[in-house]
Simulated scan of single mutants.
Amino acid sequence: MHTLPMPERTVEPAANSRADLDLVIVTGASGGGRSTVAKALENVGYYVVDNLPESLLVTMAELAFESGEATRRTAMVLDVRSHAFTADLVGAVDDLKDRGFKPRVVFVDAEEDILVRRFEKVRRAHPLQGSGRILDGIAAERELLAAARETADALIDTSHLNENQLRARVEELFAPADARKLRITTLSFGFKYGIPLDADFVVDVRFLPNPYWIPELRDHTGTEEAVSQYVLRQPGAEEFIGGYAGLIASTASGFEREGKRYVTVAVGCTGGKHRSVAIAEALALALRDNGLSAYPHHRDMGLE
């Protein structure tokens, strides 16, 4: 997307220390949506360096630190096609931390069958499949990326997100406000579409009556007042929200001490349209009342 300029000797760094540089590293599965994430980061003010080899990660971070206000917020999208990718990335991130940087690593991923369909749709080979099948390339990449996925600060499951939804998700996570605080996403979903890969907590709200069986509510969603009130007025709903908000709030300081910056609370019902949506909205509000940065996101709303 951009070529990072070489700094002039007279330029003073915009950040007082390397820890002040807002540095994001994007990696993940081929076909997972790295390019869309990069565009979304540009939308919220990041200077994006695309297709960067991991061997240049430290060098580019140092250049960003020295290059002034234009690169105060920098994102680097790493190219997976290096066969030393995993070891180099984890080691490079550790090197950045040793030098005083505080990078955030974002890993994009998707379910195997979704990745296959995406490659078939664009009629492209997987970069690691060689003479084999797309599935062979995905399997090789999964092994290559295992350590990077495990150590990522944020895991974004793009399986059920279109391009606009993924862009909105990234913009929610990386908007300038509260950039260094723990950010909590209450993610509604439908169990029939699968549990989100990026969930830190999974909440099942199928113990509540389903508005689907109320004819006047069936075609509406949990973001609408009639459905929301129906769900939230059910016995146990308010107690559930209050109790779970308290549980998450009690863990927030521990997550921050451990350096975790993103927590996803997945709230599930059958179809991801009524109960989970209403509870995810109410839970985000309750978490904000507890002084936390929390935002609802609805993965499966609109699929039915």
Rank of each mutant, 00 (worst) to 15 (best):
E172C: 10
F207C: 09
A199L: 02
R183D: 07
G194W: 02
E172D: 15
E171P: 05
T186F: 08
D200F: 03
G194E: 03
F174G: 12
P211Y: 08
V170H: 10
E172A: 14
Y212M: 11
P196N: 13
I184C: 02
D198K: 07
F191H: 15
L197A: 11
T186K: 02
A177I: 07
V203P: 05
I195A: 01
A199Y: 02
R183I: 11
K192T: 06
A179K: 11
L208F: 11
P196T: 13
A175H: 10
R180P: 00
A177C: 06
T185M: 07
V205Q: 04
Y193F: 11
V170M: 14
R183H: 13
N210C: 07
D200P: 00
G194R: 08
T185Y: 03
I195S: 02
R180E: 13
E172F: 12
D204K: 05
D204C: 06
T186N: 01
L173N: 04
E172M: 15
D200M: 07
P176D: 11
N210T: 03
R206H: 06
D198M: 10
F189K: 01
L173I: 12
L187V: 12
Y212N: 06
E171Q: 15
L208R: 09
E171S: 13
F191E: 15
L197Q: 09
N210E: 05
T185I: 13
G190F: 04
D200C: 03
V170S: 12
F207H: 06
G190N: 03
G194K: 06
D198W: 09
A179Q: 09
P211V: 11
Y193K: 06
G194H: 07
I195H: 00
D178K: 14
L208Y: 02
L187M: 10
E171H: 07
L187P: 01
V205W: 03
G190K: 06
L173V: 07
R180I: 06
P209E: 13
L197R: 09
V202W: 02
I184H: 01
F191D: 09
F191R: 15
P209R: 13
F174M: 08
F201A: 09
V203C: 12
G194M: 09
G194Y: 05
L208K: 08
F191C: 15
A177S: 14
E171M: 15
P196I: 13
A199E: 01
T186E: 01
P209A: 14
V203L: 15
L182K: 02
K192S: 00
K192C: 00
D178Q: 12
P176N: 09
F191T: 15
F174A: 08
A199W: 01
K192H: 04
A175G: 03
V202I: 11
F201E: 08
A179C: 10
A175F: 09
R183F: 09
D204E: 08
Y212Q: 01
G194A: 13
D200G: 03
Y193T: 02
G190D: 05
Y212L: 12
P196A: 15
S188D: 05
L182G: 00
V170I: 15
R183S: 11
F207Y: 04
